[in-house]
């Protein structure tokens, strides 16, 4: 499964996004605030989920901030780390 699709599935199933399917999430939709409506508590959870599912630990939080913009940026971040 491609990283983006896996991420969307994780978001819907593990962060309990109500009334939304993985297919409905656009790649560029912001994860936090007006986009998917995630908040600071979800950010903590997301850090844990990324480590659990992809084995990637977000150490540098500035980097994490850029990665957390959308599914697209997060998938790009994960892809880069997996290759590196």
């Amino acid at each position: 499964m491609a990283i983006k699709e896996k991420l969307k599935k994780i978001l819907v199933e593990e962060l309990n996004l109500e009334d939304m399917t993985a297919e409905e999430i656009e790649d560029s939709t912001p994860l936090f605030g007006e986009g998917l409506g995630l908040d600071s508590l979800d950010a903590v959870e997301l850090v844990v989920l990324i480590q659990k599912h992809f084995g990637i630990e977000i150490q540098d939080m500035e980097e994490g901030r850029e990665a957390f913009e959308s599914v697209e940026t997060l998938a790009g971040f994960i892809d880069e780390r997996l290759k590196g």
């Binding site: 600071s40 950010a43 850090v47 630990e57 540098d60 939080m61 500035e62 957390f68």
Partner: peptide, 15 residues
């Protein structure tokens, strides 16, 4: 701040 400072807090602890 951004996401209530949670990323910054986690970053500090991870260091």
């Amino acid at each position: 701040g951004y996401l209530g400072g949670t990323l910054e807090m986690m970053g500090a602890l991870k260091k």
